[in-house]
Design a protein around this nucleic acid. Sequence first.
DNA 1: TTGTAGGCGTTATCAG
DNA 2: CTGATAACGCCTACAA
Lengths: 349, 349
Amino acid sequence: MVRQLHGSPSSITDVAALANVSIATVSRVLSGKRAKNDDISRRVREAAAQLDYSVNRAASSLRGTTTKMVGVVVPSTYDLFCSALIDALEPVIDDHSDQLILGLGATHDLQMSRIESLVDRNVDGLVVVCAPDTDLTDVFDRHAGQLPIVQIGEGRRSVHTSSVTIDQALSMEQVISHLATLNVKSVAYLAGEQFSFESAEMLSMLHTQLRAFGLTTQPSWNQFGPATVERGFNATMRILATDRPDAIVCVDDNVAFGAMVAIRALRLRVPQDIKVIGANDSPLSRESNPTLTTLRPPFEQIADEAMRLIERGPSYTSHISLVSQLIVRESTLGTAADMERQITSGADE
Amino acid sequence: MVRQLHGSPSSITDVAALANVSIATVSRVLSGKRAKNDDISRRVREAAAQLDYSVNRAASSLRGTTTKMVGVVVPSTYDLFCSALIDALEPVIDDHSDQLILGLGATHDLQMSRIESLVDRNVDGLVVVCAPDTDLTDVFDRHAGQLPIVQIGEGRRSVHTSSVTIDQALSMEQVISHLATLNVKSVAYLAGEQFSFESAEMLSMLHTQLRAFGLTTQPSWNQFGPATVERGFNATMRILATDRPDAIVCVDDNVAFGAMVAIRALRLRVPQDIKVIGANDSPLSRESNPTLTTLRPPFEQIADEAMRLIERGPSYTSHISLVSQLIVRESTLGTAADMERQITSGADE
DNA sequence: TTGTAGGCGTTATCAG
DNA sequence: CTGATAACGCCTACAA
């Protein structure tokens, strides 16, 4: 393989010359728009490899109809949902030989600005996680005719864009059904921030499912708050000061961890005395709490569906709803021995 | 402003026609390669605005010398250091009117593949966080002549690339000096994973600084392990079963949180009985542990320096070392009242 | 199936 | 400082 360390990289003309064919043929062979796999085809590939040739994307974008770039706009990579999504999206985008262009913005204006930039760049598609309380429908409507846009998760929908969401009702049903199987009678719920539409929706579904399965809860057990370990700890302490629910369902694995610590601090056992379930599981939280029964959003599926929708172009819009996976672990099913092990081992070495 | 909802977007030719100048002049005005700010300049800008014109980056890249794209390659966005870095880098890159192309890879092969893709795309520069135990010097050497490459943090350095790192020695000095001021005599250290070079370096610096300030430690107090809440909890429980260090320094805010929970579980007080210090602070961990004294890496500075190095082009290489900021909070300086408040309040509402 | 040639929108060059 | 013009590298009718 000849490396052109100095001088400009080889172009399609060089390949054509070396393979003794026209540049049109080279273009067709290399872009797969040619049926046969004969001698010519072989010669072209060989020449390309020898010259270490790769297409100039700028030229290709200029003349062709795609840029092989996909824009991804999310509020922040701190957000565990967003980082899990990005980690799932990146390999899928790479598989399509596309590039992931990242836009960050936690406000309407920032998100809009990033989206405009990406549209300016003629990205082939846009994946957007709307910031909380943000309405981007105007921006979407403005561009949805030009390129496929896929909204992920909550947020007001534009008529012209596709969406991939998580079916919170089915997810909650899995949780309550699981608890019912374990003979749980009463359930506390540590929700997310009050102002979030998602939180309100989840809470309402919880009540629906509790009713369906004949379980009970109490108003003081259904608390809104930030999704932090500390909040889980504090909220649980407060509930357990006077009451004793059979299970605590948490909006987040961090909250669930705080709850478990609080339960242990009160000399109660998980899961024998109280069962704990988390949600919005991500590899990061899993690592820090490997015994927690939790709802894992289907990030790989989300990424696959999003890219599929982008591939189909702007004229096709579809709304896809996926269901989280309930991962059953010791915090609901474990034996006393399991939990003992969890607390005392974890050997540092 | 005239929107061209249907039909192709306006090009430089349209602007030139409307402004009654040549396309060359339009190009110069809009790219700032023209001194005066006279009538011509004004007419051009006006025409561009009227036509909602924006340059076609593909054409610009094809003809010009830059692509206005910066590649960022990191192991994973789960990693708090990486997500904090990306969140700091994105706005800086946007300020330069560039786009951030993200490449993810936790292994040598993946990182190399992403870097090759980005170089193929002719990005204007590359920011790379090497995966642990990964040597990318061969890849760097191959491309460092073509485009500026900036390594962030640990990892083997290539002679031809720039780097921006955190001065761990100075950071540790801040920590120990702070503890010395508070009359701390003995310090335990919960390190990161044993195999990481960074961990070993930090531990050695800890000992150096302890000696310098006349503090003590014990071999059994210096433990390697994963950076999780659970690990911090377990490790602290084990140490406190027999010993009583005046302070515990943790490699990570999560570990520190686990340590604080363990201390409280043993009915000891932070900071009166034992002081706790974290490190690698990020907004995420700060949110879940707002009372922790911690070392915050200078992400904004890192981002600024990285972009500055990229702007200077491939021929200029420089190695920059920045120092973390010690954020002093209640876990070392607080009063009893502070900590009481921390535990019992945190009002869910 | 292959080659030829035109043009995508921009920037760099060079002459005025 | 401005304007005309030549690339940049590629894709794709269209002709052979």
